[in-house]
Design a protein around this nucleic acid. Sequence first.
DNA 1: CGAAATTTTGATCACGTTCAACTTCAGTGG
DNA 2: CCACTGAAGTTGAACGTGATCAAAATTTCG
Lengths: 233, 233
Amino acid sequence: MIANPFFRRLDRLSRLSNADISALDNLFDEEREITKKKDIVPAGYKLTKVYLVEHGFGIRYKLLPSGKRQVLNVILPGYIIGLSAAIFSRSPWSVMSLTVMSLKAAPFDRFIETCYARPAIAIAMMSLSEQKHAYVSERLADIGRRTPIERVAHFIIEIRERLRAVGYVVGNDLETPLSQEVIADCLGLSMPHVNRMLRKLKEMRLITTRDQVMTLTNQTELGLLAGCDPTMS
Amino acid sequence: MIANPFFRRLDRLSRLSNADISALDNLFDEEREITKKKDIVPAGYKLTKVYLVEHGFGIRYKLLPSGKRQVLNVILPGYIIGLSAAIFSRSPWSVMSLTVMSLKAAPFDRFIETCYARPAIAIAMMSLSEQKHAYVSERLADIGRRTPIERVAHFIIEIRERLRAVGYVVGNDLETPLSQEVIADCLGLSMPHVNRMLRKLKEMRLITTRDQVMTLTNQTELGLLAGCDPTMS
DNA sequence: CGAAATTTTGATCACGTTCAACTTCAGTGG
DNA sequence: CCACTGAAGTTGAACGTGATCAAAATTTCG
């Protein structure tokens, strides 16, 4: 197994042979560096390449006519960017980097050819799509029916879980470049309210923060508050 | 092309050969009838079959510990049920019928075997997953950042668009079994508020309703109000 | 026709947005 | 090294929105 957050994710979902893995590895052969806060995929455009995230954080988001922004998903190492933008004639959303990112690119048509030649890869991609789908669905339940404090608690836990799956979690800490503004746009809240909810979580002694690092001091209680679906763990 | 809403959807997304189509048709060979308001997939369970919807409407939803319900997606003819519930060890959500439904079932392991044998099917499934993903993302932007009136307008347009894609739309009318309670749970609103917003749309002369049928009397204005993403059409 | 589900309406009020000001922090150039 | 700048975090006050609860009207269906 090649050390790479993407293959680590795939390995959890689906059985790929070593030949499949190295085919993928050969496919994504073009390196690309992105500076922070840079648009990678603009809404409405078609892409002819797909990207794997090696390092760094980004967001997938929609800008509404009112000027408001909804963050649809946080993009972590090991994630694919541009699949929808390559499949459909216009990307339904935008993607931008939050931090410096390093990507690996592959031409979409070669990617599809590889899927034909190695069905296991296509099936693994289907699983990945379904997993993405599950994450967005969870966020939908968050925003639609959870209270703001529950949303924030739930968000913290989910991001942690996803980072763990790509090997980025150490101990009880959680280190992310997510500003309160980004969190607000993820959760459909205003920035001041996110700030208040985070303060409340600190007052409840469920989390502490120092510098950019959040520490979960009482994970059980936090999960209870979040109304965590035992299904998803 | 076999007359079937699912194949009609697939045909829009991906090029399948006639052999692929008949392989799928043979695969989903078990007929199953579901009465109205019946659970089809319970949250937390694993399925060993996947289903195609031939007729009828359903919803995919989550029940939160607080007792509130978030509808994640409306299930229409031509949709697949149970893919996530078969891929993951526990279904992250529930599915229930709204109306009487007729389904066609296939064992999941045979479905996967068919994907191996016919990669075009696996690739088509990947496209379908991405499309589902786009729908849920659109709903996320709705609930997170659109005003209630915009949400309702947008919801009407989206459901119409999706029904059109499976050949269920005639003229300016829209006939669905979606009660205001279901719409409220789709949009993260309370039922009385959905009622008010629908009244407002009528006052604005954008829609009229008679019996179960809604008529869009001014689709342009409705789309403008919804802040419709020209990207998605 | 009767029962149940759905829609409609109203009154009240808590919650979360909005807007604005201020603080803190990080990065940069003088 | 410190002043400067812009970004991010923090706090407060006021307002408006949409939830909640309850009741009535209407429709649907057995």
